[in-house]
């Protein structure tokens, strides 16, 4: 496979598309706790299905919204196809999902009440830090011309390791940060600390491989059967 030529200078960034923003945001969810990730991965689709069944069923039911609610909560028996769907969802949601999620969250909290991550020993986390919203994986183009160190990193990682392809470099950067977020070393960190550490690891890894114009993700995918 031929290697693209090395561009003489870093090409100007093109800006972020909505698709990249959504992908970056979705991949950043790996910094969140397991329960939160589960709600994003499964909770939102389940909620959408419930919403669809509710709206569809409410339109078919003589009793409207309250009729579907009573079928969901197993008060009334189903009388038509859409209400059968609501009834089955009600059977599944109440004991299996809601009970399962609540049980896991309570059990996990009980388990962790006396556990403190090693790097948090003697540390103080104020309310501001606890309430800080989760961040997103860095958009590399935002580092352009930000500082000398960032420009050097972009030159090595985007121009040399990815032959100036901002799109591929961004994708591989997100993949590496996402995979680092899934490691055991970052498991006990809060969402912002985990993302900071993951990006620190990713940058260090990409620098050392970048000194040989290599990208770990490019190499791994090239060797993939």
């Amino acid at each position: 496979m031929s290697v693209p030529p090395l561009p003489p200078s870093l090409l100007p960034p093109r800006g972020q598309s909505m698709a990249v923003w959504i992908r970056r945001t979705f991949r950043s969810r790996k910094a969140l706790s397991g329960v939160t990730q589960w709600f994003i991965d499964w909770g939102i689709p389940i909620f959408l299905v419930i919403g669809f069944v509710w709206v569809f069923g409410a339109g078919r039911s003589e009793k409207g919204w309250s009729g579907i609610y009573r079928v969901f909560t197993l008060i009334d028996r189903p009388v038509h196809v859409s209400s059968w769907g609501a009834s089955i969802l009600g059977w599944l949601l109440v004991p299996a999902l809601i009970g399962g999620v609540a049980g896991h969250v309570i059990a996990a909290r009980m388990q962790r009440v006396k556990e403190i991550a090693t790097n948090q020993l003697f540390q103080r986390r104020g309310l501001k830090r606890r309430l800080k919203p989760p961040g997103r994986i860095t958009f590399l183009e935002s580092l352009h011309l930000k500082s000398a160190e960032d420009q050097e990193f972009l030159d090595r990682y985007v121009r040399r390791a990815h032959r100036g392809d901002w799109k591929k470099a961004q994708d591989h950067w997100e993949v590496l940060v996402r995979d680092v977020l899934c490691t055991v070393e970052l498991a006990e960190l809060d969402r912002n600390e985990a993302l900071e550490s993951a990006e620190s690891v990713a940058r260090a890894v990409m620098w050392v491989t970048g000194y040989q114009d290599k990208c770990l993700v490019c190499t791994a995918r090239a060797h993939q059967p």
Binding site: E149, V180, E199, S200, V201, A202, R203, A204, W207
Partner: peptide, 8 residues
């Protein structure tokens, strides 16, 4: 990396 030395 985990200690933050990769940042910047």
């Amino acid at each position: 990396g985990v200690e933050g030395h990769g940042t910047g």
